[in-house]
Design a protein around this nucleic acid. Structure first.
Length: 488
RNA sequence: GAGCCGUUAGCUCAGUCGGUAGAGCACCUGCCUUUUAAGCAGGGCGUCGUGGGUUCGAGUCCCACACGGCUCACCA
């Protein structure tokens, strides 16, 4: 029987119900208990005390046994069994109960009892159809496996696969734990523009759109950074934003074009303060959400307990490859050194990018336990403050967990003249390469010229954090509706 | 963007060497008053992703395309 046939049968049933005066989509329903509350109420009741409930939910299984029918209802709290008996509700009501279809929403009034096999069950006194379903549910014990259907019709995935539901509940709990952590430390959550006349704060391809009334090109933000710093300049000392960034780039198990990022800025702090804050946050969120600061990711045990390992990029590369970037301190010297080690790193635009490639190739995959990589090359860090000791480097770190780049932070550059030069330098770099020029944000520099306090800033991807906390290998498993190609 | 793999009933899957397309669940009919993957008896599921080609004959072989997955590329 085709899908249309099953759907056709249900539409026919719907017409019969309407003809019999039953509203298959009544506007309101009664409910006294969720499934979980009903079960708890029964357990708490004194022996022999009658517990009457009205529960509501989706019909997910049905066992018709002649004049008795068992079924399970699922609601947001879990599931509960109900039992209908013809001798208790009469032939007409019993017939109507049997004619319910899997996936229909109903509510049920009755008293709770324990069956012979021990399951707490609602003995049906009366029931009401709340919403007729016209299509069947996925198969009941294999669930829904087809990846494409799971992503395109996530509601079916959530209905059929309990562990998927759990992942997204965990995601929500992680995000609210982050908010609690930051709010408790005096951070305020703010909202900055998603539609921006100029994009910045990261080196990424933007999505471009157009505002009709203004007749103006707008970009979907690639980062929050430049707006949040304007707020630091404006006198908010601790701000954060959780929201979507949009990057017009490839899709992979670690990249979705639209992803959730958090950025935070703290005035009168530097990147050392940020490291202390971040490791404390991860450990506390893990403790709160997972009950432990040690977690398992793809077969590896990860210990988030502070303090995390800190190592400079120079030292990490030296340890892994024997190449000292302080000696190979020009593009040509470093290119020669990497070739001598048999590494093919392509032709990046400058020394800093070559350092980064070398790092990604030789160090990154080995960073399983949480690690801060500090002191990045200046020419790939146009928004970070130079290290006092060596102006080729900046006070910046990225942190890595399970071989994955998880986030990025620095002591923020607050020297407006230096900032202008940095923007101009990156534009030079991009002009020589194929990448689009990075726009100089004059308005941002003007803001900084009004004075910006010393500030530490940080950003990380929430999706990758959720992957880590829920042991998922693909970012699509932690985004409710991941980007897929449209079907014709 | 490239390579590899996948796409068969509403769902989960099998389909041998190219020879009339299968199972379980779901669905329909009947029986069944404590089942829970209920059970028993019976029923029919279908554009084998799409379009071409080879062949007497294609789910199966070939080509192209679509969508998905993985890997790579891209990615501060």
């Amino acid at each position: 029987m085709s899908d249309l046939d099953q759907r056709g049968q249900r539409i026919a049933k719907l017409a019969q119900l309407r003809a019999a005066g039953v509203d298959p989509y009544p506007p309101r329903c009664q409910r006294s208990h969720t499934a979980a509350e009903a079960l708890a109420a029964f357990e708490q009741a004194a022996e022999g005390q009658e517990v009457r409930v009205c529960v509501a939910g989706r019909l997910i299984s049905q066992r018709l046994m002649g004049k008795t029918t068992f079924a399970h209802l699922a609601d947001g709290s879990g599931r509960i069994q109900v039992m209908a008996r013809q001798d208790l509700i009469g032939e007409a009501a019993y017939q109507a109960f049997k004619e319910l279809d899997l996936a229909d929403f109903i509510n049920v009034n009755g008293k709770l009892f324990r069956t012979r096999t021990g399951e707490v069950t609602v003995l049906v006194d009366s029931f009401q159809l709340l919403a007729k379903a016209l299509r069947p549910l996925p198969e009941k014990w294999h669930g829904l496996r087809d990846t494409e259907t799971r992503y395109r019709q996530r509601y079916l995935d959530l209905i059929a696969n309990e562990e998927v539901r759990h992942i997204f509940l965990t995601r929500t709990r992680i995000i609210s734990a982050i908010r609690r952590f930051l709010d408790a430390r005096g951070f305020i959550e703010v909202e900055t523009p998603i539609l921006q006349p100029l994009y910045g704060g990261a080196a990424a391809q933007p999505f471009t759109t157009h505002h009709n009334a203004l007749d103006q090109t707008l970009y979907l933000r690639i980062a929050d950074e430049l707006y949040l710093k304007r707020l630091i300049i404006g006198g908010f000392e601790r701000v954060y934003e959780i929201g979507h960034n949009f990057r017009n780039e490839g899709i992979s198990t670690r990249h979705n074009p639209e992803f959730t990022a958090i950025e935070l800025y703290q005035a009168y702090a530097d990147y050392n303060d940020i490291m202390a804050l971040l490791e404390e946050l991860y450990a506390e969120v893990a403790q709160e959400v997972l009950g432990s600061s040690v977690l398992q990711y793809q077969g590896q045990l990860i210990d988030l307990t502070p303090p995390w390992r800190r190592i400079s990029m120079r030292q990490a590369i030296l340890d892994a490859s024997g190449i000292d970037i302080l000696e190979a301190d020009t593009y040509d010297k470093l290119a020669a050194a990497t070739q001598a080690h048999g590494l093919n790193l392509g032709k990046p635009a400058n020394w800093g990018k070559l350092v980064e490639k070398l790092f990604e190739e030789t160090v990154e995959p080995s960073l399983v336990q949480p690690t801060y990589i500090t002191e990045f090359p200046l020419d790939i860090s146009p928004l970070a403050k130079k290290t006092p000791a060596d102006p080729m480097f900046v006070e910046r770190f990225e942190f890595f967990i399970a071989g994955m780049e998880c986030g990025n932070a620095f002591t923020e550059l607050n020297d407006p003249l230096d900032q202008r030069e940095r923007f101009q330098a990156t534009q030079q770099d991009f002009k020589s390469g194929e990448d689009e020029a990075h726009p100089l944000d004059e308005d941002f520099i003007i803001a900084m010229e009004h004075g910006m306090p010393p500030t530490g800033g940080l950003g990380w991807g929430i999706d990758r954090m959720v992957m880590l906390f829920t042991d998922q290998a693909s970012i699509r498993e932690v985004i409710l509706f991941p980007q897929l190609r449209s079907r014709d």
